[in-house]
Every structure is written in C-alpha cells, then in structure tokens.
Amino acid sequence: MVAETTVAEVMAELSALEEPKARAVNEKHGDDHGVHLSKLRALAKRLKTQHELACRLWETDDTAARLLAILICRPKAFERHELDVMLREARAPKVHDWLVNYVVKRSTHTEELRVAWSADPDPVVASAGWALTTERVTKKPEGLDLPGLLDVIETEMKDAPDRLQWAMNHCLAQIGITHTEHRARAIDIGKRLEVLKDYPTSPGCTSPFAPTWITEMVRRRHDM
C-alpha cells in the first residue's frame, strides 16, 4: 500500500505541474504530456533513484510518469525481456528516446537488444536498434560491418517510415563524420537519396541532410 500511495502522490504532483501551453507544444511532436522537462528533472532529482517506484510509475501508462520513471530507475536492474517489453510500450517519441538513451544504453543487455531490434519488423522498434548501432559507430565500432550498414541504408532508408528513416540517416551521418574511409560513400548515398534534404532548419542549427551534416561536423573538427 505504501508504494501505491507514493505513486498517487507523485501522480498528483505531476498533475499540478501540467501546463496547457507545454502540452500543446509537446503534442505537436507526438508527446501527450504538459510538464516542462526542467520541472520533471527537478522532481527526479528530489526523488533520487527509486527503482520500485519507477516500475510502478511506468505501469501507469502516463507519458509524464514514464519519463520520470526513466530518470529515477536503475538501468542495470532491468532484465532483457523487460526492456524489450518497455520499448514496445513506449510509443510517445520522447519516452522512446529517453528509454533508449538513459536506460538501454546503460544496461547490461545493450548489444543483444541492438542486434534484435535492428532486425525487428516494427519500424519504431527497429529505429531503437539503429540508434544503438549509431552509438557503436561513434564510440565502439570494432566488429561492426560498416560497409554492410551502408548497403542497408542505401537500399532501405529512402522508403523507411519517418522514425526509422531518421535513425538510419543519423547512422549514415555518423559513419561519414567518424570514419574517414567511408566518408565519400556516405556523402554520395546522402546526395542520391536526398533524405531530409529540404528539412526546415533553424538559424544556427546544422541541417540533418547527411551530406551537409557530415561536411559541417568535419569542418568544425578541423577548426578546433
């Protein structure tokens, strides 16, 4: 009963933090909550790590509660099958993104899930696999078949659903940025496929169009 009361208290606090304007902005990106992320992080900092509470909050199926759960859980406490179920439940983009970056990447099952998810027929699940692959491309590329990844990107990215396409494009860009020997091919693939070529980019931000992204990041490295 104590855990249930605690969940009720946290849910009440999240409800009090709800702001209609924040919800309107978030809903444009597919995230159905109205709590500013800075306030969510402040609440998580106050609660500190509470894994059992995190699991109970996740079970509420509330987006703000799940984001909070991600911040107060113990990533290494989850079994592989638990993370797989959680990812498939995480349909809100922000929950999906935080779960992959803050939990799965810190778990002991990252590589197994990367391989399994990358081949999953669900494009949202597959996008998580590609996000984990991009992490390896950047930080631990040993053992990865980079030419093979470029083959898949070249064949499948153009017609992939939005979230999967975005994840594959990110991987393409990182291969070009971090691996000189594959840079020319990565840029060529990006130019031919033209994925995100016309994506609106705010002043001062780098375009997600892979050839532009790669060229700009390489230039910055040389300028440092």
Rank of each mutant, 00 (worst) to 15 (best):
A69S: 15
N26E: 06
L67C: 14
A3G: 00
L17M: 15
T60D: 09
L149T: 01
K39E: 12
I175S: 01
T201L: 07
R192F: 13
E13F: 02
A173D: 01
K28M: 12
L87C: 08
L40E: 06
A90F: 08
D159H: 08
M224Q: 14
A126L: 11
A24I: 08
C73A: 14
R163G: 07
P75Y: 10
K39S: 11
M224G: 15
T134L: 00
W117F: 14
R219G: 03
A90Y: 10
L99Q: 04
L40D: 04
G148Y: 07
L146I: 04
A24M: 12
E135C: 02
L67H: 02
L14I: 02
L87T: 03
H36K: 14
D223V: 10
I187S: 04
D61Y: 11
L196C: 06
K158W: 00
I187E: 08
C55I: 07
A69K: 04
L67D: 07
D223Y: 04
P208G: 06
P93A: 13
V115M: 12
Y102V: 00
T5C: 04
G204Y: 12
T134P: 00
R66V: 00
T134S: 05
P20N: 14
P208W: 01
L68G: 06
K48F: 00
A42T: 13
A210E: 02
A44H: 11
L68S: 05
R46C: 01
E111M: 11
E216I: 03
D223P: 00
H179V: 01
W98V: 03
D198M: 11
G190P: 06
